[in-house]
Design a protein around this nucleic acid. Sequence first.
DNA 1: CCTTAACTGGATATTCACATCCACTTTACA
DNA 2: TGTAAAGTGGATGTGAATATCCAGTTAAGG
Lengths: 148, 148
Amino acid sequence: MISQTAEYALRAVTHLAYNAGAPQTNRQISESTHVPMPYLSKVLQGMARAGLIRSQRGIYGGFVLARSAADLTVYEVIQSVDPIARILSCPLGLKAHGVNLCPLHRRLDDAMALVEKAFKDSTIADVLAEPTTSKPLCSLPLTVASIP
Amino acid sequence: MISQTAEYALRAVTHLAYNAGAPQTNRQISESTHVPMPYLSKVLQGMARAGLIRSQRGIYGGFVLARSAADLTVYEVIQSVDPIARILSCPLGLKAHGVNLCPLHRRLDDAMALVEKAFKDSTIADVLAEPTTSKPLCSLPLTVASIP
DNA sequence: CCTTAACTGGATATTCACATCCACTTTACA
DNA sequence: TGTAAAGTGGATGTGAATATCCAGTTAAGG
């Protein structure tokens, strides 16, 4: 449904939103989100290039959200690392169809539109405040900001 | 969103539904759906094992739908070759969460549920009869049953 | 039976997402 | 200004999904 990479990006952003007080290092995010550190590093780089997060090199550096969690959608995070590609033209490459999708691909694209909308309507702040679950976002609250 | 394999399976089933009159060979389906023949062969085998289609060896053999198009959903076709895996427990492997998903994964799974429902509510017959597009299902109608 | 058309199953190649490694650069602070 | 902590970028490894190939089996019809 969404790629592993997108899932990792969402976990990382969620961690950053929880710990907005101080820059979070690759290591901290990795331990909190259970994402392999070297790979997480690449995912974070991608989000930094996309402008969703900011990176700071050197000691006491790390990553912070570039915008507030209330102004960042799940959709944006996913798009930044692994875009959901809508079906814009016939995948069979039939020129005759132009912009009209055949009924099969119309259905498939409709399903994608559904998902796209659901993700656009969810901000990261919404996710953190989710009222339907009493459990915290995985183990994150247990590792909230503790810079010595 | 859905795998290449699932997309191929849907194209093949759609072709079979259009040509319910006679068994369709691997070659016929491949040419009509633009799916590489050797790979299509594997996909069809999978659907045959799952009981969605029936195969007939030997001359004048081929594949036919095992059930009517009105009784076969898009969901079943996808599941037969490449199951949509719902999120049933915390992907971070935190035992503390048991069956409760954290808010992030709750959202992601909700999106999957949306798609699952859309696909369960669409039969192959529905797709063929889709009223919102004047165009035929890709090039399929141009290649309808013509057994010499 | 024999031939031809077709599916079957196993082995193999290719591609790409996922993951790792390392040398380099940047930064804070003693 | 030296050192340790941190991100950066490039090269590389790995495994699953995708794709191909071929020898074997089945069936229809002469």
